[in-house]
């Protein structure tokens, strides 16, 4: 177990180093850092002195090492656009994105599993057929159109829900949350649904496929023969055995949800990390871009690691395999 985790940890560190290298190259070679700091009327000699003082004339590996050292401490320099430390900008906006991502993951999980079980058990009914074809249409529609459609129906026509922003937030000191006020919760609904739809269809199809497979197995037939109630068979025996892949996929998808949040945050003007990134790309705010790249990579690597460990804990067969393989 320990050896397995250590090996995965080492792989994660390598991936992070590669991403850091890319981020560093972006940081260092896209545009001239000096030119973005000083005006055109600064003398060339002064620019050279600055270059020296900032260590931009050092060899490549020294600069890269310094970049890594700063990155580990969470320092990515000052945003060109907003003139604030990048780490502070990201930390300020992180709660909004995390709340959005988790709310959408929750919606996706609850409805995805529910609809998946329903469509698997009632395979022939017209409602399942309708849900399945609706999910196909949902997958091929771009996220931003779904968001705009929801805004049009619920904010413009029905005027039930707000169409932009986070509503009122409560500052808990380290975390600015929108979950404690009514307007905050109401603002969360539409973006969370928009962001969840893709994951929802994915989980639904996965649960349906797994359920159909499990329902054909011997132990389900045996459970029937024992005279267990339908509910105990469906939820106690069948569903339980479909959950391992569902956990994996949901976990792995959480990373892409944070990335997909870029689109949702733009549509709903949600003040999160994604909208910060998109505004930085528009004006080539390099420090923010590099920091966001590192941040997303970290999220992906951590989630991957957690899912691997979780998998290992949940599925006893893997433990046996690893013990046999490790010798």
């Amino acid at each position: 177990m320990l050896a397995f985790i250590l090996r995965r940890l080492a792989q994660s560190v390598i991936v992070m180093l590669v991403v850091a290298l890319i981020a560093f190259m972006v940081f260092r070679y896209v545009g001239d850092p000096i030119a973005s700091m000083v005006g055109v009327d600064t003398r060339l000699e002064d620019q050279e002195i600055m270059r020296d003082r900032l260590g931009l004339n050092d060899p490549f590996y020294v600069q890269f090492g310094r970049f890594i050292g700063n990155a580990v401490r969470g320092e990515f320099g000052i945003s060109y656009r907003l003139q604030q430390p990048v780490s502070q900008l990201i930390l300020e906006r992180l709660p909004a994105t995390i709340e959005l991502a988790f709310a959408s993951a929750l919606i996706a999980l609850v409805f995805g599993v529910g609809l998946g079980v329903f469509t698997a058990l009632k395979r022939g009914s017209w409602l399942s057929g309708f849900i399945m074809s609706a999910s196909l249409v949902g997958v091929s529609l771009p996220t931003f159109l779904i968001g705009i459609g929801l805004i049009y129906i619920f904010a413009v026509e029905l005027q039930w829900l707000p169409s932009f922003g986070r509503g009122q937030t409560v500052d808990l000191g380290f975390w600015r949350t929108g979950l404690l006020t009514e307007s905050g919760l109401r603002s969360l609904i539409l973006p969370a649904i928009t962001l969840s739809l893709f994951q929802l269809t994915l989980i639904m199809r996965l649960v349906r496929a797994e359920m159909l497979e499990v329902m054909r197995t011997e132990y389900i037939r045996f459970a029937r023969a024992r005279g267990l109630s339908q509910r105990a068979i469906h939820f106690g025996h069948a569903l339980k055995n479909t959950l391992v892949p569902v956990i994996t996929i949901t976990g792995l998808q959480l990373g892409s949800v944070i990335a997909f949040a870029i689109v949702t945050e733009t549509v709903f003007q949600w003040p999160g990390v994604g909208s910060l990134f998109i505004n930085s790309v528009q004006v080539v705010d390099v420090p923010v871009m590099a920091a966001y790249l590192m941040f997303i990579a970290l999220v992906f690597v951590v989630i991957n690691l957690l899912v691997d460990i979780l998998y290992y804990v949940v599925d006893p067969r893997l433990r046996v395999d690893a013990a046999g393989g490790a010798k």
């Binding site: 972006v26 990335a259 997909f260 870029i262 689109v263 998109i278 790309v281 080539v284 871009m289 790249l293």
Partner: peptide, 12 residues
């Protein structure tokens, strides 16, 4: 990684 994120980075 989602394609859109990679495209955004290359674009930037």
């Amino acid at each position: 990684f989602p394609a859109i994120l990679i495209a955004l980075l290359i674009f930037g």
